Simulated assay, not measured.
Amino acid sequence: EVERMYYEALRIYEARDAKARGLKDEDVDEFYGCTLCQSFAPTHVCVITPQRYSNCGAISWFDGRAASKVDPKGPIFRIPKGECLDMVRGEYSGVDKIVQEKSLGAIKRVHLYTAFGYPHTSCGCFEAIAFYIPEVDGFGVVHRDFKGTAVNGLKFSTMADTTGGGRQVDGFHGISIEYMRSPKFLVADGGWERVVWVPKAVYERVKDFVPEKVRDKVATDEDVKTIDELKEFLKAKGHPVVSRWKLVEAEVKPAEVKVEETAGVALPQQTQATVLEGVSISGVPITSGGFKITLKGARINIDKVIIRRSSSTS
Rank of each mutant, 00 (worst) to 15 (best):
Tyr7Gln: 10
Leu10Ile: 07
Leu10Gln: 05
Arg11Asn: 15
Tyr13Asp: 09
Asp25Tyr: 02
Glu26Lys: 07
Gln38Ile: 10
Ser39Ile: 08
Phe40Ser: 07
Val45Gly: 03
Val47Pro: 00
Thr49Asn: 00
Asn55Ser: 13
Gly57Arg: 07
Phe62Thr: 10
Arg65Asp: 13
Ser68Phe: 00
Asp71Glu: 04
Pro72Lys: 03
Ile79Val: 04
Tyr92Ser: 07
Ser93Tyr: 06
Ser103Asp: 10
Leu112Gln: 03
Ser122Leu: 08
Cys125Lys: 10
Ala130Gly: 11
Asp137Thr: 06
Phe139Asn: 02
Asp145Glu: 14
Lys147Asp: 08
Gly148Ser: 12
Ser157Phe: 09
Met159Gln: 06
Ala160Cys: 08
Gly164Ser: 15
Gln168Tyr: 12
Gly174Ile: 07
Ile175Tyr: 01
Ile177Ala: 11
Gly191Ser: 10
Val195Ser: 03
Val196Gly: 02
Ala201Trp: 07
Glu204Tyr: 04
Lys213Gly: 06
Arg215Gln: 10
Asp221Ser: 15
Glu222Trp: 02
Asp223Phe: 08
Lys225Asp: 06
Val242Leu: 08
Ser243Glu: 11
Leu247Cys: 04
Leu247Phe: 11
Val257Thr: 05
Val265Arg: 05
Gln272Ile: 08
Leu276Thr: 14
Ser280Val: 10
Ser282Ile: 14
Gly290Pro: 01
Gly290Val: 04
Thr294Asp: 15
Thr294Lys: 15
Gly297Glu: 14
Thr313Lys: 14
Thr313Phe: 12
